[in-house]
């Protein structure tokens, strides 16, 4: 009998879980999400490449390009803090799962990003 209260309460309250993917929660501010770059600001100094603990960034000074392996990145935000011109940033949502691994490649001449 002592359970009646709990049963009634559980019947009358909402779900504890969200009906994902139809209902999503807003991400919190300053979440360490997907790593992005404003490539036009980058000076190709290579600091981010040196500091990254999982060594997943590649910087090509001659070719003026920057690339990251988003599947080796651990989203720690060290590179974001280290960049002297603050051209790296992390955006709200975590990277969605994909079927195949790829690199994220940015070069300064073309402004569109072309995942290879």
């Amino acid at each position: 009998m002592f359970m009646t209260k709990t049963v009634l309460k559980n019947l009358l309250t909402k779900y504890a879980t969200r009906l994902y993917p139809f209902q999503t929660r807003e991400t919190f501010k300053d979440v360490k999400g997907e790593l992005k770059i404003e490539i036009d600001k980058c000076v190709f100094c290579g600091v981010c490449k040196m500091r990254c603990p999982s060594q997943c960034i590649g910087v090509d000074k001659k070719g003026r390009s920057w690339e990251v392996d988003p599947f080796a990145c651990v989203y720690c935000g060290i590179c974001v803090d280290a960049c002297p011109v603050k051209c790296l940033y992390q955006e709200g949502m975590y990277k969605a799962p994909v079927a195949e691994k790829h690199m994220v490649f940015h070069a300064q001449e073309e402004k569109a990003d072309a995942p290879t």
Binding site: F28, K29, D30, V31, K32, V74, Y75, C76, G77, Q90
Partner: peptide
């Protein structure tokens, strides 16, 4: 976990 995500940016490895 929500508190951790909101304060540090990551859910588990708060770094």
């Amino acid at each position: 976990m929500d508190l951790q995500e909101a304060t540090s940016g990551n859910r588990v490895i708060v770094s």
